[in-house]
Structure formats: structure tokens, C-alpha cells
Design a protein around this nucleic acid. Structure first.
Length: 465
DNA sequence: GGGCATCGAG
């Protein structure tokens, strides 16, 4: 009986043997050399690829696959003037575009804190050669979200109320974005009242609050120290016909952890399974983050082992929590093991934050040689450390008289348009003065390059040796 | 023959 209830709640069906559908192999497509070449150029130098595309007369480059792939590439590289130039080209040539391209570009503008560009692009969609029905509600929602995330609440609400002007019907996601924006600005009581009012409106329109709507409100309550009300709401949402999911439980578990009740959070993770909701990585992530906060590495290891037993494959966030925990709790070598496992076993490429944790972890532990090794990998993958990290490693290399590596790091700092702080230079000079004549030669070598002081009181290295 | 696929969470 219980298993039937659980299946009904989770929407799972009893597994039954099914014939696997006959898979047809897609027909072989002729490779398009011009497109392949453009993509390989774009991988190294997106601007050069743009020049090639604009100056070419090859019709293969003046088509959606070539233009969209380059638009995505330019967006990722945050080369927005170049991206806009290509958009003008696409529009003037009436190249057919998909609506999803605009969604993605709006998102890129938003992440780069360019909400005006996002809005401008959305409004210009009808002037492109798009399929009927563009822009879609999904693209509209991306725009609403980009405005809310950039603090442009009034514009988001104004657009939301004028959705019909664009021939669009708002859906539950549109409502949730607006709810998220309002809850960011309202206090305890007003936020709750507003949400109830919005939920009623959603029901009247036949949309109904979704699990995300409830999660937003539950999260709002836990952040406002109203954990018991949040727990009550979880029960109420079930009565109102919406079942909590792993995120709902994660939000509540985080609330319990924040009020120093780790044991209750862990118990809730077991209870959710009993209630028919499958535990996900996010639930383990909440517990592991709390272990990191409390420095409880033993429990952290237990949780990680338990995940393994349950055959849950860690994702990049879980790896990041582990690496961070080991680095901040004096286990940099364990952190490095996880860092390697993440790449070899997990097939994840470390992001800038993970590289920074690792390099800084090694520097903090005095293992500069290893820190330098990770730094090299970091720079090779196009990520940069903090200036303080450069300073720390340069000071250490200075002690060892490793001029070539110091110069390499200076060149990398130059790319970031950064320089050493004045106090770091002072300490380097002091080191030289305390050492023998060889070090004085080293100082001459390094300072033979021209430096200029800027308003931030840092020296910019003007001429790389 | 194009990609990142809306909103909540670690």
C-alpha cells in the first residue's frame, strides 16, 4: 500500500519490460569545411572568426549554424560589441534565427550586468527573421529574470503587466520571477501577504502556484527566521495539491542548519524519503556545507561515503564543497586528491573559484611549489587568480631567485591589467637588502623595467622583459 | 547542421 502511495506521489510507474525502440542511424552529413574552419578559428580568437565571417562570400558562413555558433562563442567570451555587430549582420541579411538563440543571449547580457542590452535585444526580436510566435514566453521570462536579477524591479513588473502587448501569455514561471523580485524587497509580513495574493491570482488564471512558487515562499520564511511557519507551509502546500520536492526539503534543511540544528536537518533528509521524495545531491550539499561551516570533517567524509554507497555521482558543486572544506580545514592534500578525482573520474573542468581555492590552499599551507603547479594549469585554462595570490607566489619565487618564473607571472598580471601593491614591493626590496649581492643583481634585473604608480597605489609593469 | 532550454537549492 505504502509503495503504491509513494509511486503515486513521485509519479513513478512500476517498471515493466518494454521493447527498445528501433533506433535509426541519422544519415551521414557532408562536412562543411568553411564551417569547421570558422569554429576552429573562433575557439582561439573569436574576433578573428568574426572578421572572417563578415568578409567572406561563402554562403555556408552566412547561415544560421555558422552565425549562431559564433554568436554563442562571442557571448561566452563577453565580446559584446562584436556580438552586436554580428547581430546587425544577421538581421540585415535576413538570416533565419531560432527563438532559443535570443533567450541564451539575453541570459548572457544579464550575467554580464547588461540588462539594458537584454531589453534592447528582446524588443528588437520582431525585426529578425524568426519563426512565428517569437519571442516566446520563455524568452520573455528570461528577460524578466534578467531585469529582476539586476535590480530593475519596476521595469520587470511593468513588462509583466504589459505581456499582452507582445502577444504573450504569462505562465507560472513569469509569476515566479515576479514573486522572487518582490520577496527580495519586502519584509516578513508584507512578503507573505503579497505571495498569498499572487497565489490567488495565479489560481484564478488557471495557472496555480507551482512547487517553485512555494519554494520561493518557504525560502523567504526560513531566511526571515520563521522556520516553524515554513514547515507549516510545507504541509499546507500538500493540502493545496502541490507536493514538495528535493529543493523544498533542501531549503528547510538549510533553515535547520542555520539555526544550529544539524541533527534535525539530517533527520528531515531521511523523512523526505519516507514521504516519497527521493534524496538528491542538493540535500547532501546542504549537510556537507554545514559540516564545512562547523569544521566537522569526519561527518563530511561519512556523508561522501554514504553518497557513494547510494551510487549518487557527485557533481561540480559537491566537489567544490569538498575542496573548499579540506582547504579551509588544513587538509590541502586531501583537497588536491578531490581536485584530481573531480577531473579524472567526474570529467569536470574546474572553474575559476575551484582553482583559486586550490592555489590559495597550497599557499596557505606553505606548499608553494604545488600552488605554482595548479596556478599554471589555471592560467592555461584561461582563469586568473586573485592579485594577492600572485603577490604571495612572487614573494616566494623571489626568495628562491627564480627570475624567469617571476617574469612569467608579471606578464600574466599585465594581461589582467594588475600590478603588485606598494607594500609588496617594499617587502621584496627589504628581502634583497638583507641578502647578498646576487639578490641585488636580481632586483636590478626586475626594476630595470619601467613602472608607473596609479591611483590605486599599485605599480603597473609597462615593458615585459 | 547547431549549442547554454526559463523560476527555487547545496
Amino acid at each position: 500500500m505504502l509503495s503504491r502511495v509513494r509511486r503515486a506521489r513521485t509519479g513513478l510507474r512500476r517498471s515493466c519490460p518494454r521493447k527498445s525502440p528501433q533506433r535509426r542511424t541519422p544519415p551521414e552529413k557532408e562536412p562543411i569545411p568553411a564551417l569547421q574552419e570558422l569554429k576552429s578559428v573562433a575557439a582561439g580568437d573569436p574576433t578573428a572568426a568574426l572578421c572572417r565571417l563578415l568578409s567572406s562570400s561563402d554562403p555556408a558562413l552566412h547561415d544560421y549554424p555558422a552565425c549562431s555558433s559564433l554568436l554563442y562563442r562571442l557571448a561566452r567570451a563577453r565580446l559584446f560589441p562584436e556580438l552586436e555587430a554580428l547581430l546587425l549582420f544577421v538581421r540585415s541579411r535576413r538570416i533565419p534565427c531560432k527563438d532559443s538563440l535570443f533567450s541564451a543571449l539575453i541570459r548572457h547580457f544579464s550575467r554580464a550586468s547588461l540588462p539594458d542590452k537584454a531589453l534592447g535585444l528582446f524588443l528588437s526580436i520582431p525585426s529578425f527573421n524568426c519563426p512565428p510566435g517569437s519571442p516566446s514566453t520563455q524568452t520573455f521570462n528570461h528577460l524578466l529574470d534578467s531585469l529582476v536579477d539586476n535590480g530593475r524591479h519596476d521595469e520587470a513588473e511593468s513588462l509583466f503587466s504589459r505581456s499582452s502587448d507582445f502577444g504573450l501569455r504569462r505562465n507560472h514561471v513569469s509569476y515566479n520571477v515576479i514573486l522572487k523580485g518582490r520577496l527580495q524587497r519586502l519584509g516578513k509580513d508584507d512578503g507573505f501577504a503579497y505571495a498569498r495574493q499572487l497565489f490567488d491570482e495565479m489560481r484564478k488564471r488557471g495557472i496555480g502556484p507551482s512547487v517553485v512558487s512555494y519554494n520561493l515562499l518557504i525560502g523567504f520564511l526560513t531566511k526571515n527566521n520563521n522556520l516553524s511557519k515554513a514547515m507549516d507551509l510545507k504541509e499546507k502546500m500538500i493540502r493545496e495539491g502541490t507536493y514538495p520536492n528535493a529543493v523544498t526539503y533542501a531549503i528547510l534543511m538549510k533553515g535547520l542548519c542555520s539555526s544550529d540544528n544539524y541533527a534535525a536537518a539530517k533527520k528531515l533528509m531521511f523523512d523526505m524519503e519516507y514521504n516519497g521524495c527521493k534524496t538528491k545531491l542538493v540535500n547532501y550539499g546542504v549537510l556537507m556545507s554545514d559540516c564545512r561551516r562547523r569544521g566537522d570533517m569526519e561527518e563530511m567524509r561519512k556523508l561522501f561515503a554514504e553518497m557513494r554507497i547510494r551510487r549518487m555521482k557527485p557533481d561540480d558543486v559537491i566537489y567544490s564543497i569538498l575542496i573548499n572544506s579540506f582547504c579551509t580545514n588544513g587538509g590541502v592534500r586531501d583537497a588536491y586528491k578531490v581536485f584530481v578525482e573531480m577531473q579524472v573520474k567526474g570529467k569536470f573542468r574546474p572553474n575559476a573559484a575551484i582553482y583559486r581555492m586550490m592555489v590559495d590552499g597550497f599557499c596557505k599551507a606553505g606548499e608553494f611549489e604545488k600552488g605554482l603547479g595548479v596556478l599554471n594549469a589555471m592560467l592555461a585554462s584561461g582563469h586568473y587568480p586573485r592579485v594577492k595570490t600572485f603577490e604571495c607566489l612572487i614573494s616566494w619565487l623571489f626568495e628562491g631567485g627564480r627570475v624567469r618564473e617571476i617574469c612569467f607571472l608579471f606578464e600574466e598580471m599585465e594581461k589582467m591589467k594588475k600590478g603588485l601593491a606598494l607594500d609588496v614591493w617594499h617587502s621584496l626590496v627589504k628581502t634583497v637588502c638583507l641578502k647578498c649581492d646576487d639578490f641585488a643583481d636580481l632586483l636590478c634585473e626586475l626594476t630595470s623595467m619601467a613602472f608607473v604608480e596609479d591611483e590605486e597605489n599599485t605599480f603597473h609593469h609597462l615593458h615585459p622583459p
